[in-house]
Simulated assay, not measured.
Amino acid sequence: MEFQNLLIEDKNRIRYITINRESKLNALNRDTIAELHTAFANAFSNKAIGGIIITGAGQKAFVAGADIAEFADLDTESASRLAKENQAKVFDLVANGSKPVIAAINGYALGGGLELALAAHIRIASTTAKMGLPEVTLGLIPGYGGTQRLSKLVGSGKAFEMILTADMITADEAYLVGLVNYVVEPGEIIARAEALLNKMLQRAPLALAAAIAAINAAGAPDGFDIEIAEFGKCFGNKDTKEGITAFLEKRKPDFRGE
């Protein structure tokens, strides 16, 4: 597929997805959402891809929000349908994906942009990044998982503050509250994401997928049951047998994603 709003590069088992709407501060419109769905779905199903880094074009914005012009004609029913469909197509797809996703937040991550970063498994921010959920200034609330995922990451108190005031926070503040994993200089953000992802790609791919599923279930009523089930499923994998054997033989394992 030829993308109009994304730049895609596959290199050394990493898929790089760059939202390429720099003149619009990489805002998420319908077409970009559709392309993100295709790019992520393909990456998750492609055995040659081990993980994904997502970022925004330019230095100003990761994603500065949704395209608000597309909200103008929505009513209660159509807005609910839009939120449900887009959550499923992109935000839930990313969060529940079988491969690690790192968001390289290179500038403003606001509204739907921050929600996209929240859906990723790890977030790395540049020192110039600013993050926020300003929807209440439009008479709205976050509709792509922001109220849920932000609360899980930073706690309900900080989530209430950020969402109800609509204030942006700096990268350093985001690090202090656990919203991002690292803060680096702008020119170092992709290299840091690559280093972290390459370390993960040395591990067993099916174990990574199982770990993502179990971590996502944290706090759910059946969270422990899901962890137990994923743990048990690992013993049906060839990689698990290889990992245990390699450990006992004091050698590096040769994981094949089987």
Rank of each mutant, 00 (worst) to 15 (best):
L118V: 12
E115G: 00
V154Q: 02
D167Q: 15
I169H: 08
L140R: 14
K130E: 07
V136S: 11
G178N: 11
A166E: 00
Y175K: 15
G178S: 13
S126K: 10
T170C: 08
V136E: 09
Y144Q: 12
V177G: 06
T137Q: 01
E173G: 11
A166L: 00
I141R: 12
M168A: 15
P142D: 06
L116R: 15
E161R: 07
I124C: 13
L118E: 04
S126D: 11
K130L: 09
R149P: 05
E115M: 03
F160Q: 10
K152V: 02
I124E: 06
S126G: 15
S156L: 13
I141F: 10
K158V: 05
T128G: 06
L179P: 15
T127D: 09
G146S: 12
Y175I: 06
L133K: 01
L176E: 14
S156M: 09
P142A: 14
L179I: 06
T137Y: 00
L179F: 09
K152Y: 08
K152D: 08
L133R: 02
L164T: 15
Y144R: 12
A117S: 12
D167G: 14
E173Q: 15
T128E: 08
E135P: 00
L138W: 12
A119I: 08
L179A: 11
A125H: 11
V177A: 03
L140N: 12
A117F: 02
M131Q: 11
I163G: 02
G143D: 14
A120P: 00
A174G: 13
R123S: 07
A129G: 12
R123K: 11
M168R: 13
K158M: 14
L140P: 05
P142N: 08
T170I: 04
V136A: 09
F160N: 09
L179E: 04
T147F: 00
P142V: 01
P142H: 07
G155W: 09
S126L: 09
L133A: 03
V177Y: 07
Y175R: 15
L133H: 01
Q148W: 07
E115P: 01
I163P: 00
A129M: 10
G143F: 10
A159H: 02
I163Q: 03
L116P: 13
A166R: 01
M162C: 03
Q148L: 14
L150V: 03
A119F: 11
G157E: 13
L153H: 06
S126Y: 07
G143T: 14
G139W: 01
E135T: 00
V136P: 07
G139K: 04
T128Q: 13
P142F: 04
P134W: 04
L133T: 00
A159F: 02
S126N: 12
S156F: 13
